[in-house]
Measured scan of single mutants.
Amino acid sequence: MDSLVVLVLCLSCLLLLSLWRQSSGRGKLPPGPTPLPVIGNILQIGIKDISKSLTNLSKVYGPVFTLYFGLKPIVVLHGYEAVKEALIDLGEEFSGRGIFPLAERANRGFGIVFSNGKKWKEIRRFSLMTLRNFGMGKRSIEDRVQEEARCLVEELRKTKASPCDPTFILGCAPCNVICSIIFHKRFDYKDQQFLNLMEKLNENIKILSSPWIQICNNFSPIIDYFPGTHNKLLKNVAFMKSYILEKVKEHQESMDMNNPQDFIDCFLMKMEKEKHNQPSEFTIESLENTAVDLFGAGTETTSTTLRYALLLLLKHPEVTAKVQEEIERVIGRNRSPCMQDRSHMPYTDAVVHEVQRYIDLLPTSLPHAVTCDIKFRNYLIPKGTTILISLTSVLHDNKEFPNPEMFDPHHFLDEGGNFKKSKYFMPFSAGKRICVGEALAGMELFLFLTSILQNFNLKSLVDPKNLDTTPVVNGFASVPPFYQLCFIPV
């Protein structure tokens, strides 16, 4: 009986604490739906499609509103004006990374994606500088992407125009580009180590996009005490870190300090320079996690976009025909596509942009946080508050993009057929937390897609009208449904 009384008292205290925290903070924060004790607004949000729920709530509470995930307040920004004001106009104040408990377990605050403060700034600055020195957006990395595009075309030829699921092959190409940047090595598509790495990356994007992960991140005790797919994700990350550590040891034994070959060499050189400046942010643990982040951000996002792009091109054969006509006119058949071609191919450029806009790969991006107490639109948001960005509300804005739910390359073309930029184009987020590999991803999408369409016609196994382009999961990332196609050599 005594234990029951204690339990009831504990629960009562928890409920009172929950109510007090919510009521004391709500006077400062933007308005929002009334949260339930302990669980907050979790029942009012469709976990399978958070973005749709945010759109519905914005119609009631406006472009800036507050939700509670458990006891934790989260300020939501919906629509271009609110997102721009926060991420661009007040970029420094909104540059923090929001709480992501599962990532905390995986990387302990290291790396480039989930770190904060001085650690994040130094690692991000170093990573950007190193990638630029190796030619991100310049010639040397373009050579690597072109080489991988040629290998991709050869792998597709091996399908002999038979029906195939493109998931694996389209994942190999961007993964190999990242391998060449980090390890100075590309792998054969049949290499077992490479296959294991690909498998872990593919599993992780599916797990991260599941409703279960949303629950884990908002009720963090689940991570330590409950079984579930989150444990598989943590094991996959541990596998990748151990693999990278092996490569780091190989580099330490063979590195030429006067001739760095890749990202690992550059990081080890930085560690050597910083060894007298303790404590340094440049450690082996930081290198492991930064490399894992580059793999995660640079492989599955690009391969998922490529997979979605081919599905949309199957669905819209008239678009595919126009792209192939432009390829034939500008590039021809006797040389590989290059980035200089893009400025002469406005329709193809528009298609690449429209694919990214339409699929809305990361509907709410990753959570941000404010780095200080900030007054925002007459609300006071306390330091450390998590900020949720609705990228969907920007990419699918119906004023900027008429009929935003329709796939239409003319969203990025003017009346004369010239490519038209849009400030609403934010597939990689915006501001200080914009994806480090934005330029690389854009290069890969253009070169891989043009190389495929230069060499193959795409054949659907069903009537294009019957192809479903609805994402199968739409949590962290929008993942396309399973499909097969035939690559018919031109």
Rank of each mutant, 00 (worst) to 15 (best):
H316R: 06
K420V: 08
I99W: 14
F168P: 07
E122R: 12
L90G: 09
V177E: 00
C216Y: 12
I181M: 09
L14G: 06
L67E: 01
P317R: 06
V352H: 00
Q22I: 11
V75H: 00
V60F: 05
G109V: 05
E92F: 05
A149I: 02
V462W: 01
D463P: 13
S478A: 15
N398V: 12
F487Y: 02
S58L: 01
L313I: 02
I141A: 06
R125D: 13
E326P: 00
G171S: 13
N466G: 10
Q484C: 10
D191V: 02
K399L: 15
P337D: 01
P37G: 04
G475S: 10
I452E: 00
R329A: 09
L313H: 00
R377L: 02
P221A: 08
F126A: 05
I434V: 12
T229K: 14
L467V: 10
L131P: 02
L77S: 00
R433H: 06
D49L: 01
K432L: 10
G384E: 06
I374D: 00
G96S: 12
N466Q: 09
Y243I: 15
F187P: 01
M271G: 05
T290Y: 09
H251M: 03
V330D: 01
K121R: 13
Q261E: 13
I213C: 13
Y189N: 03
N259A: 12
Y483P: 03
V237Q: 14
E354G: 01
V330P: 00
L170D: 02
A161M: 15
K459S: 07
L4G: 04
N204M: 07
P346I: 03
N457D: 12
K247E: 13
S127A: 13
K28T: 14
F114C: 14
G79M: 00
E81V: 08
D262L: 01
D49H: 11
V473S: 10
H411V: 01
E274S: 13
S127D: 04
M257C: 09
S242K: 14
E274Y: 07
D414R: 02
T392Y: 08
V5F: 15
G135P: 11
T34E: 14
I488M: 12
P382V: 04
L440H: 00
A291Q: 01
I359E: 03
T392F: 06
M136D: 07
F219Q: 02
A106W: 15
L128S: 14
V472M: 12
S162A: 10
R97V: 05
D191H: 06
P481G: 07
L287F: 04
A441R: 02
H344N: 13
I434N: 12
P174Q: 15
V370K: 01
G171C: 12
H276M: 10
V472L: 13
L485V: 14
K206N: 15
F412L: 01
N277F: 12
Q146D: 04
L9C: 07
D165I: 00
S343A: 11
F407T: 01
I222Q: 03
Y243D: 02
V5R: 01
C172S: 15
I359G: 07
I223V: 12
S390E: 02
E354R: 00
H251F: 03
Q22D: 13
L7C: 06
R335G: 04
Q22S: 11
M406W: 10
N289P: 04
F226L: 15
N259C: 10
V330A: 07
S429W: 03
L208P: 04
T385H: 03
P33F: 00
K28R: 12
L43E: 04
D468P: 07
N259D: 13
N196P: 05
I47T: 15
I244V: 13
K241V: 04
E199L: 12
S162D: 15
S286Q: 15
A439H: 15
Q324H: 10
N418L: 11
T386L: 09
S343L: 15
F482I: 12
V153P: 01
V145L: 05
E199M: 11
G437T: 07
I264K: 03
I327G: 01
T386C: 12
K160C: 12
L294S: 01
H344P: 02
L7R: 00
F476G: 11
K421Y: 11
I74K: 03
T299K: 03
H368I: 05
T364L: 15
F219H: 04
S478H: 09
G332D: 05
K185E: 10
M257V: 14
N289G: 10
P317Q: 08
F183V: 04
E354N: 01
Q146T: 09
E154R: 09
H230N: 07
M136G: 12
H353W: 02
I223E: 03
N218F: 14
L11P: 01
V145S: 02
S58I: 02
R329C: 12
I50Q: 11
Q146R: 12
M345E: 00
C179L: 03
N259T: 12
F239S: 13
D191N: 12
E326A: 01
G442F: 06
R97D: 08
V394L: 10
V355A: 07
I169V: 15
C266A: 15
G228R: 06
K273L: 11
S209L: 08
N196G: 10
G32Y: 00
I88A: 09
H251P: 02
Y308V: 02
